[in-house]
Design a protein around this nucleic acid. Structure first.
Lengths: 216, 216, 216, 216
DNA sequence: CATGAATGAGTATTCATTCAT
DNA sequence: CATGAATGAATACTCATTCAT
């Protein structure tokens, strides 16, 4: 009888799912434009209108697939992490018959190479992620990558001893965290290369066994 | 209707330098409020108006000290990094007569402890920094911390061999980057502790000497 | 990116007339959904898309029958008023041989009961009508209902004296306006009932004849 | 440590209260413009931007005093009802020594005259009120006006008999509701005048006493 | 000097309407 | 002939910044 209306609640689901081929193209164009604007003009210039227009669609179309700017960002990050994990999972164990050192070296380079591989891993984006979204994406990636390390090492039958969980985490944190930090401070490629070599050396030593450290 | 303000034209210079004691107190209050609001209410709530009001000054006064929001942020980060570097520089070399291992251990813990030490090093803030400002602060901190490592190791007369520049950088990147990354993924304290131990072990090995790594 | 629609240029005529039986069903479904959404979710949620989808047709189909949202609303209100007037006209004169008091009582209750009778007379809707459409529907209903009063009273041969036009209008305005206002302020049923009784009493007196009013 | 931020909740209090004289002028200008645009251009054209600009202030200034469009509307309606009630309360009892008939006549004309008195009582606005806001304003006005009737009648010592509560409500509903409805259907002034006379007559009879109604 | 009222460009988001399929 | 993907003008609201008092 009176104005008992359900309170307006923001949409949280996309109106449409990109089922048709045409729609998939649209979504991909939006993702591409999203990251392009970010990199070219900075975060402040990433507006839904700008993304939509530069992607060649109307704002309304963007909102057909992403119910909010936040959802666009989350969707993009999920998309990226999916690709990252897929790449790691496939390549990490692939060529059989490698020494464990070779395997680890491959993985370190694979993880490191991720940055140059594509714009979708621009460090600024991941840096900002926890601020504008939640840490869950990062945490998922962290755990998945930890598993990747484990699988690589388990596949290496000649490894002297499987590292402890803590060692594994240390390994991953050092390799991945150092890489992220290097991108952040924009370490020149040459220095980066040298650093990666030193880092790899360190990893191999850690995995090679206890060794002897003289503690005077 | 009354005062028609000309459209915002950002100034280039701060109008005042905090030369007087009273001014320093004001600036400190602004800094404190800045980080307090950030932590309590999130980045979205950090507005110049909110900061000024909660700091007990008028918005205009805030703008007397900081010509823009950007300048406020930069000023705050500079302030933090100054304190960080001061702490490192003082403590790193202080107690003479330590073994190099002890020195390195001290430094690693010092760097690691920095995050829990105080709010002025809130990780979210540094994560966001490159997005809303430039990378220069991070770069300066990076270089200064690299010097800290060098000084610590140079002060250790019993160190077998001074590491190469690349090794030094690798060392720092791993320690610092891993720590940042651990904060990002919110690694539980217990696991963090184990990881730090493993990491420290790795650092000590690296510095202990070339060792032998059998590369099949 | 695909179909660039020209900016909305409202058409002037409905493209189809619901001549076929199937079309009438569709129109009825749209009307039903229109009012259902309004009542359930409030005016803000009444969007053409929502109406069409919930009615089980495509938006485009809705626009085949109604050239604009405005037209949909107007069509619905016309539909309602048609039904209201039909009900009044049929019932008002029907049982012959009633006293004029009984006739008036019947009409008052009929008019009053209209609100509780069905959703198609939701008061909010009529309240909003003049805002989003024109007053013409209300005016037409007003005039028709005035005629209903006249017919009822003309059919009552035992009525002492036919009231003047002004009296007739006063009668209707009081009965109908009071009812609308009562709905607006959500008068509780019990109080409403008492009020209706008093009101009816007043009507009967007015019609009974001049009476005597001592005006000091 | 992480992004535990209080969720952004829309402001519900004005940032400023119009304490200074200048501010009061501003608020009044906003109110005037609000109703002017509504009447001149219709509800659809009432946008916060339009109101602010035509009132000669910036949008931000409007939002300094009204935290939302809803609040602006509510504030305006409250403002109007306040004025209405003040007028009624003052004038209803004022000239002592009047007959009860004269008092009632005065009140009826006072209530009726309200519409011509000022734009702030435009019927469309009150019609829309329950849709975009809550019924509470209307209910408050209803109750206050009921009290006005009671006071007026209590002040009339020569009134034959105090009407029952139901009769009082019926009286007010008829007078006020009829007037609202007459405005809605845009009854021409001449007919309105005649109707008011008939209505007044009816009221006086109702109050004069039981009378005799022959019910055949 | 400090103040805080006023500014207004800019943001995310909605929804009536069209038309290619 | 129905469909629903795409359109984009328009809206409420924010907040860094200024300057008259």
């Amino acid at each position: 009888m009176s104005s008992k209306a359900t309170p307006p609640q923001p949409r949280n689901k996309p109106l449409k799912r990109p089922t048709q081929a045409r729609a998939k193209v649209t979504v991909q164009a939006i993702f591409d434009t999203y990251v392009r604007i970010w990199q070219r003009d900075g975060w402040e210039r990433v507006t839904t209108r700008a993304v939509a227009l530069e992607a060649g669609v109307a704002v309304g179309t963007l909102y057909d697939y992403f119910p909010s700017k936040q959802a666009l960002h989350s969707g993009y990050v999920r998309h990226c992490i999916e690709r990252l994990l897929a790449a790691v999972q496939v390549q990490a164990v692939e060529p059989a018959g490698l020494s464990w050192q070779a395997r680890v070296t491959r993985l370190v380079h694979l993880l490191g190479g991720v940055a140059e591989e594509a714009a979708w891993f621009h460090p600024q984006m991941l840096e900002l992620e926890p601020v504008i979204a939640e840490a869950k994406h990062q945490q998922r990636a962290y755990n998945e990558l930890l598993q990747a390390w484990r699988r690589v090492l388990e596949a290496a039958s000649d490894l002297p001893a499987m590292p402890s969980d803590a060692q594994l985490e240390a390994l991953h944190l050092m390799v991945w965290g150092a890489r992220r930090y290097a991108l952040l401070v924009e370490l020149p490629p040459q220095r980066l290369q040298a650093v990666v070599a030193a880092q790899l050396d360190s990893c191999l030593r850690l995995l090679a066994g206890p060794g002897e450290i003289s503690d005077g």
